[in-house]
Design a protein around this nucleic acid. Sequence first.
DNA 1: TTGAAAAATTTACGCGAGTAAAAAACATGA
DNA 2: TCATGTTTTTTACTCGCGTAAATTTTTCAA
Lengths: 343, 343
Amino acid sequence: MTDQKIKNMEDFAAVSGISRPTISKYFNDPDSVRKSTRAKIETALEKYDYRPNIYAVNQNRRQTKNIGLVVPNLTDPFFAGFARTIEGLVVEAGYNPLLLSSHGGPEQELANLDSLRSIKPAGVLLAPLGRASLEERVAEFTNEVPTVLFDANLEGIGEAFFGSDNNQSIGLIVDYLCRSGEPPVFFEMKAPINPNAYKRRTAYLEAMERLGHEPHLIQVNGQGWNFEEIGFREGARVLTNQRLPSNTILCSNDRLAIGLLSAAFENGLKVGLEADSFLRIAGHDDHPFSRFTCPSLTTVSQDYEAIAAKSVETVLSLVDSRERLKKREEILFEGKLVMRGSA
Amino acid sequence: MTDQKIKNMEDFAAVSGISRPTISKYFNDPDSVRKSTRAKIETALEKYDYRPNIYAVNQNRRQTKNIGLVVPNLTDPFFAGFARTIEGLVVEAGYNPLLLSSHGGPEQELANLDSLRSIKPAGVLLAPLGRASLEERVAEFTNEVPTVLFDANLEGIGEAFFGSDNNQSIGLIVDYLCRSGEPPVFFEMKAPINPNAYKRRTAYLEAMERLGHEPHLIQVNGQGWNFEEIGFREGARVLTNQRLPSNTILCSNDRLAIGLLSAAFENGLKVGLEADSFLRIAGHDDHPFSRFTCPSLTTVSQDYEAIAAKSVETVLSLVDSRERLKKREEILFEGKLVMRGSA
DNA sequence: TTGAAAAATTTACGCGAGTAAAAAACATGA
DNA sequence: TCATGTTTTTTACTCGCGTAAATTTTTCAA
């Protein structure tokens, strides 16, 4: 490494003995130059520490290599894992992911889209919060920038949506619970933020009807994304005050279930499959922590790797083609039953 | 909102009736122009949708407004929360945070610093992994870019370090445990990744000595950042095979404790303060999930808000002054005992 | 050896702003 | 009203690179 200062492509072209336009071409695609030239450039690259100024590059390119990635809440390990997987795929494809978290707030979500706007992303992957009032503003954004939705759907918005088949997955676990014991009641928030929650509610009602059981919804109060807290607090109320029509509780998501399990423990109510258990509790999502609850949580895993892969693939193909999809695409991936100790 | 297209500052200057250099000045600091001019500009801003091209701006500014933020592992809610707090402070100060996660790998950490380099951040906040072999490369980076370390210290690297006083916090909980029952053994990984783990081990040994008790380290195998998994697996081995010299276990961090609690439950060992409990378990960090373990986890909370505030304040003052600190600063913040059910 | 195709070079312009210097316009208070 | 200092305008240059067109060089097969 020589320490002669290379401040721009001009300088680097000089020391490498190649013209600047060719150097530029090389950086846009190393395979687009003759092998012997590439070798010369790479030799120089080892000797001198140079990389193109990203601001100058992006100012002139038709399209940046930036891919925006917006998740509802990074504090939730489920989304953190999702984001990590997606980031990996994006990087692998030679693009530059930019991760933003909406922290559970619709205003923050819009702020995120706004700050993405300013970096002119080639495409965006958005897991929306899904607060009806702001869908319009999100739609505006997706008109400007090719956007693929994942995890939660906003009808008709974006080029495509990839997520879980709540119908199938809830059906799966309701089937299992009915088969192995008393039919479940459904534990959820009264006014959920996330569109999936509504889908799951409906799926539960349908599954119970299909199996000829009386459905029963337990809809608790609570705002925001502190699901464990809500599950704990409201779960304690329900468990101590209310006479439930079943000893089996299916929670709308694992985080509620984690809170509920904690409440059950606190109140000395044994949860599990054993004969002396008072309750069975199941969740949905296969949250990273659900293996470590007491007892470990029976749940449904989402195929988030497939969702991530398909989402990235789709947004990148949009970016490459510089076209929009003729028809909005929508694929729902199936969940898998994860049997553990709690139900 | 008129839809006449404003494509650059020139256009915007035209429609707002102000000269381009003055517009430029306005965007760099709205208060630097006369009130009447500012009013004119802001009126135009409401009418026409224009924002400066960030790439052109950053190409010409002496310094970008970007602040890099690198955390070891976003999948850990503790760091996700930390990051969120820091992001908020950075935005509030008018800077642009860029969040990257090292995913627990030193190579990824270097890759993160490398990709930060290309966006020419004005300053960086780094919570390092602390793998000795790569410290040198991190140090190189901190020579180029003003960097403040937080959470984990690398001796002599960066302009400053702000973190927890492990000595104080471990002392605090060892005191408490000894006062309220049997002196604790210390449960930790044999070869921890994180520098704090070493500090905590030492702090434990010192605290025990100070109180006149025989220390006892349980050092388990395990690689990487799956602390719950390691705590669970190795915890189960220890609890079933080993005769412990105490019924009280202090874990090096909450995530290990969460796994250990799960293992205890699985093996039918009652944890808690009750007379019929077999074990007491305590952790460190006040992890977001530690309220929902069974039983809830007694631990020490880090003053991460203070650490975040001080870190941001310091890096921004470095950025503003465009100077380096004469002397590396180092502040350790005290932890607080969080008494819950497990010990 | 030749000749066509492929690749590299030369030249030149554009992108959208920051910034500096000099000139002009404006604000303020006595 | 005038002098003074403050803002704004004008003009012009710079940043580092993408990109296009015309030209030259290289490559490789016939």
